[in-house]
């Protein structure tokens, strides 16, 4: 019986660099995104085709959502929000295709799958959380200035100073919560699907697959929306949001 390891399995190494089965999935996601970009740029017209229309609806919808939450910084926040959503969603949904987690190399421990959900690798989710957090801080400094940004964390008032220290702590907890939430959900889904597929090959895994489709969408949306919310909060000047 195949087990799902907590860490992504290494398929081979390039020097000291380990090529894991989650990395191969991410490479496919990259290829899909690049193919989409090429296809879009090749056929972009004033009167859109089906693909362009779909992309325009999604982009316009997401931009409208960003604008409704942060009207002033929508243009800066939107690329992160949209890219995180698309990237995570594709990584989550791609792992539901046949062959993921099942086709691989036979080893002593069992089968080492060639492909595994990117979200089930903490390196992937942690990388995205780190980027989201750093981008949030950079955007905040760019938008409201370093003085105002630091005023959010440091104050001569002991109560505000304590709140500021908690805020600093929350930066790190945000990284942990963002990365582990996504990792936990996708990894758990991976485990459930692998287990159920080994118990019942047909029909029974279908509801779980459907559930994973929803989980994949929701988790991508949660990660992207939280990042957007953090960005919107931090790019709003300290006084605009109301006094402490």
């Amino acid at each position: 019986m195949a087990m799902v390891e907590l860490a992504a399995e290494t398929l081979f190494r390039i020097g000291s660099f380990p090529v894991t089965n989650t990395l191969t999935e991410i490479v496919i996601v990259d290829a899909l995104i690049i193919a989409g970009i090429v296809l879009l740029n090749k056929n972009i017209k004033k009167i859109p085709g089906a693909f362009q229309n779909l992309v325009e609806i999604v982009v316009d919808g997401f931009y409208g959502l960003t604008e409704s939450i942060s009207p002033k910084s929508a243009m800066s926040i939107f690329p992160y929000f949209m890219s995180l959503f698309v990237f995570i969603l594709l990584a989550n949904w791609l792992s539901l295709f046949p062959g993921f987690g099942t086709v691989g190399l036979k080893s002593k421990e069992g089968i080492i799958a060639f492909l595994r959900a990117g979200g089930s690798d903490i390196n992937f989710t942690l990388a995205l959380a780190i980027i989201a957090t750093i981008a949030t801080q950079v955007l905040a400094i760019k938008t409201i200035g370093i003085k105002h940004h630091l005023a959010r964390y440091f104050s001569f008032n002991p109560i505000f100073l304590f709140v500021g220290l908690l805020e600093i702590l929350s930066i790190f907890t945000n990284v942990v919560s963002l990365s582990f939430r996504l990792f936990g959900n996708i990894f758990a889904g991976d485990v459930v699907l692998t287990t159920i597929s080994q118990m019942f090959a047909f029909i029974l895994p279908l509801p779980f697959m459907a559930l994973e489709i929803i989980v994949g969408l929701v988790q991508a949306l949660v990660f992207a929306m939280l990042t957007m919310a953090f960005m919107a909060i931090l790019t709003t000047p300290h006084n605009e949001g109301g006094e402490h």
Partner: peptide, 13 residues
């Protein structure tokens, strides 16, 4: 245990 690898992390970033 979780498989955190600085190289992989950097690659993902």
């Amino acid at each position: 245990e979780f498989g955190v690898n600085p190289l992989l992390l950097a690659a993902q970033i």
